[in-house]
């Protein structure tokens, strides 16, 4: 009986160890990446944000329209005119696949900026800086500064567009990335 106990104990230690080794402790849900390849090179991926439903936070100095309503945003003496927004990010088919932050300031002492930080669980993150002045067509271009995971080592452009629906009840922010891999050294 003691022999059975000891053998079972040893087998259990080995079995639990094997289980811990082989079975992933974290298995994140991941939507299919909807990436298209441009004829002249580069991977294009389009994301969008439904407004107002995908807004998680809107932080504006001295504003009564902060989201959520109880948000205590620091005053202008601390963050100047900087505004920060946090959104849920959807893929082309409308599935939420990540979260993103957009921060902007027009009066920052070191120069105005508009930036996006995008975080896609199980995929990676991307950081982009946008041009201050939008184009005549109403959209804004930007550059990818750095990325991790699927976006690691990629460079390219980010295109931001605000699309307002006819009835103006629901609008969208469309983000499109066009990214290419870095060219390795020729042998």
């Amino acid at each position: 009986m003691i022999k059975t106990f000891l053998i079972a104990t040893i087998l259990s230690i080995i079995g639990t160890g094997a289980l811990t080794w082989y079975v992933p402790a974290v298995d994140l849900h991941r939507e299919r990446s909807l990436i298209s390849v441009q004829p002249n090179g580069g991977n294009v991926e389009t994301f969008h944000i439904n407004l107002p439903s995908d807004r998680v936070m809107v932080g504006l100095p001295n504003s009564d329209i902060s989201i959520p309503a109880a948000l205590e945003w620091p005053g202008q003496e601390v963050v100047g005119d900087m505004q920060a927004e946090i959104f849920k990010i959807r893929d082309r088919e409308g599935m939420v696949i990540g979260v993103g932050s957009r921060i902007a300031s027009a009066a920052e002492a070191t120069g105005p900026f508009i930036e996006w930080g995008l975080h896609f669980p199980a995929r990676g993150s991307a950081y982009a800086r946008m041009e201050i002045t939008p184009t005549a067509d109403g959209f804004r271009n930007g550059l990818m500064l750095s990325g991790t995971g699927d976006f690691s080592g990629l460079s390219g452009t980010v295109h931001e567009e605000f699309v307002s629906d006819a009835d103006d009840i629901q609008s969208r922010i469309v983000l499109q990335t066009t990214l290419v891999g870095s060219v390795g050294e020729l042998e």
Binding site: L28, H29, P68, L71, K88, M95, V96, G98, H119
Partner: peptide, 20 residues
């Protein structure tokens, strides 16, 4: 926090948190 903040319940962001 604060009250009524949108929660990240969708499957792809279920294991994600945002902290400001």
């Amino acid at each position: 926090h604060p009250e009524w903040v949108a929660e990240l319940w969708e499957p792809a962001v279920y294991n994600t948190n945002v902290f400001v």
